[in-house]
């Protein structure tokens, strides 16, 4: 992730079935360092998870720089598959921003 620091990329979490009050504690415990939506819901599902038809965690989406869903994994993809997918899209975004007038 370090290598992505200066590139057009963001990792956003959605904490599912948690309780926003202790989210920071949970994130410390789970070693989650990235910005995360608190999706409250005592019954195991908050409004975000419900809208996104979440069935299990982890579920991952990759959006391109225009906000279009380019990959979706109901489960953990292999590290290689994920890295390759991100690298391709980040390069695409970098190429686009170079083309755009400054």
């Amino acid at each position: 992730m370090q290598t992505l620091k200066d590139r057009p990329f963001a990792l956003i979490g959605v904490n599912v079935g948690g309780n926003a009050k202790n989210l920071k504690d949970v994130m410390t415990k789970e070693d989650v360092t990235w910005r995360t939506f608190a999706d409250m819901g005592d019954a195991g599902q908050g409004a975000i998870a419900a809208r996104w038809n979440l069935t299990s965690t982890p579920t991952l989406y990759v959006l391109d720089a225009r906000g279009v869903i380019r990959h979706k994994w109901l489960g953990a993809p292999g590290a290689e598959a994920l890295d390759a997918a991100l690298e391709t899209l980040i390069r695409e975004a970098e190429a686009d921003s170079e083309k755009a007038p400054k």
Binding site: F9, I12, G13, A65, L82
Partner: peptide, 18 residues
Amino acid sequence: FKLSDYRGKVVLIDFWSE
């Protein structure tokens, strides 16, 4: 905050739970 705040960047959304 909003997801769309990150338009212009590639975004990996990670739905995770404890």
